[in-house]
Amino acid sequence: MKQWKNALRAAFPCTIPVLMGYLFAGMAFGVLFRSKGYHFGWAALMSLLVYAGSMQFVAVNFFVPGISLLSVAFMTLMVNIRHVFYGLSMLRKFEGMGKKKLYMIFSLTDETYSLLCASEPPHGVDRGLFFFCIALLDQLYWIAGSMAGGLAGELITFDTTGIDFTLTALFVVIFVEQWLSTKNHWPALIGLGAAGICLVIFGQENFILPSMIVMLCVLMAFRKKETKGEEA
């Protein structure tokens, strides 16, 4: 029990940026879903079972008569395909987490992935529990936000324009943090460059998959060069 408390106490500060981002993004989703006639319970159910930020916004459009399940599955696959690669960095991290591993895999959103990459538990805190608490807190924020949006989204009277910048700022901070803590800046630059170029070529709706492919190819080419350098 004490271990849990320690892990939770260590994990919470790491998740505050996601707390702000998810509460408001979740609310926006709840409001949108309700505008299609699905009350807050539905928003909560979706955030509980699906738990995928941008996907849930896309998914709102699936709830129309005559939608084919095949196209639902295909669209979901296309929007979420980037997640196929995230686990590669987590194979070691999730090892030995027992039953919690399944939840860690389920809850691997962009934001949780970024936090898991960027955070290490303080001394004396169980690593697995620490990661699990980060993942769990993040999803709770998301569920709470989407329920609040579905219940009372229109009660927010102050102007929240621009608050979605929280998540942008989160990724920028993690980017800077990684930049400052490593000497090899190529992977970061390759990620920025591949995504930037693909955004221009493929447009904002379709650039993520090509970006991932270009990134993987360039990173692999780099490895070949590096190993060759070592051999020579």
């Binding site: 995230y86 960095s89 970024s114 980017f175 992977p187 970061a188 995504a195 990173l219 490895r223």
Partner: peptide, 26 residues
């Protein structure tokens, strides 16, 4: 785990976070 995959696991976070920055600013 194959060495190539291990290597990708190490370099991907930086690259993916770079991509996510662009994704947020799209």
């Amino acid at each position: 785990v194959p060495r190539t995959v291990k290597y990708l696991g190490e370099v991907l976070p930086s690259a993916v976070i770079g991509m996510l920055v662009v994704y947020c600013l799209k």
